[in-house]
Amino acid sequence: MTVSDDLEPAAAERPRWRRVGRSLLIVTVIVVTLAILAALGTDFWLRSQLGGQVQQLPSAMPVGDRPDDGPQDSLNIMLMGSDKRADGSIAGQRSDTMMIVNIPADRRSIGFVSIPRDSWVQVPGHGPAKINAAYSWGGPALAVETVEKLTQVRIDHVAVIDWEGFKRMIDLLGGVPVTIPFTVTDPYSDRTWKAGKYEMDGETALAYVRQRAGLPRGDLDRIERQQAVLRSLARTTMTRSTFTNPKLLYDVLDAVTANLAVDEGWTAADMRNLGWSLRSVRSNDMAFTIVPLKGLGMEQGQSVVYLDRPEGEDLWQAVRDDRLADWIEETGTGLDDVVD
């Protein structure tokens, strides 16, 4: 069905969450990749070959006063998404996605907090601005410093993702099954998504989660789409012949590691150890939420998102206490699991 025009302005004015969904998908890919690398413990050549193509980001962490460390063995990872430049670099780009990933010391769950790219915050040394400008002005270090000042959460590592790895991985796996619950038309692309069950390739899946207008509930419907594709990708990766087909395994890992950059303090050995420690985590152990929002507005002629600082403080305290996933469940603030 085509949504009436009177719903379009409201939907168009809402924050653009489409890239948030892509980041969630990539996080799952990273976690699965780390677990697979750990399982290959005796195959040194394969590990060194794939680990060697992960780009190292020099000076990616801020210096000076920083929040205290979290509980021992816990990890807070800042994930950012940014398309590579023509020369293959990511320097100078604005981050399309920003997310804090909390991995508690007991390794029984993973919590994810998405921060909208248009969030209006204080950027150290620059004053009020959209949060994604920090990455453009000062690279990962300024982006981390901005988030640490905002949240008082100590960030342990940084990962920057290019989106081509996601699309290629879906294609390598032969597509992902997705159920479209109702027929809807995208007025921008003039594409109609008919209700039913589909096997989507990488390009189709990206188009599905990127739709910005024409959805009856706007961003809520888009977020549900993203979550459905996320969990489908996780299930597909873990249940198909990925682990038993050496060539497919290598190609999947190659697709991810060739599009991943991390801080220079995060070694390949550290990532493998983390992957092994997460080997028991499944998709239902992952909890996703978005930082509490106060509303939308205009600043300096641009549309921005205002954060709800009092409610946000409760969330960030849960991260500092190493219990984000539990907090999301207790407060019922998690994103919907599936679309059906």
Rank of each mutant, 00 (worst) to 15 (best):
S95C: 09
D96C: 13
T97R: 10
M99G: 10
I100C: 11
V101K: 08
I103H: 04
A105C: 12
R107Y: 07
G111K: 02
F112M: 12
S119D: 11
S119A: 14
W120M: 15
V121L: 07
V121Y: 09
V123Y: 12
H126A: 12
K130P: 12
N132C: 15
A134Y: 01
Y135D: 14
G139H: 13
G139V: 08
P140G: 14
P140K: 11
P140H: 11
L142G: 10
A143M: 12
T146E: 01
T146R: 14
V147Q: 08
T151K: 03
Q152R: 11
R154C: 05
I155F: 08
D156F: 06
V158A: 07
G165Y: 04
G165F: 01
F166M: 02
K167C: 00
K167R: 02
K167S: 04
R168F: 08
R168C: 03
M169N: 00
D171T: 02
L172H: 01
L173K: 05
L173F: 08
L173T: 06
P177D: 02
V178H: 02
T179S: 05
T179I: 03
T179H: 04
F182M: 03
V184L: 02
V184H: 04
V184D: 00
T185L: 00
T185M: 02
D186K: 08
D190A: 08
D190F: 07
W193K: 12
K194I: 12
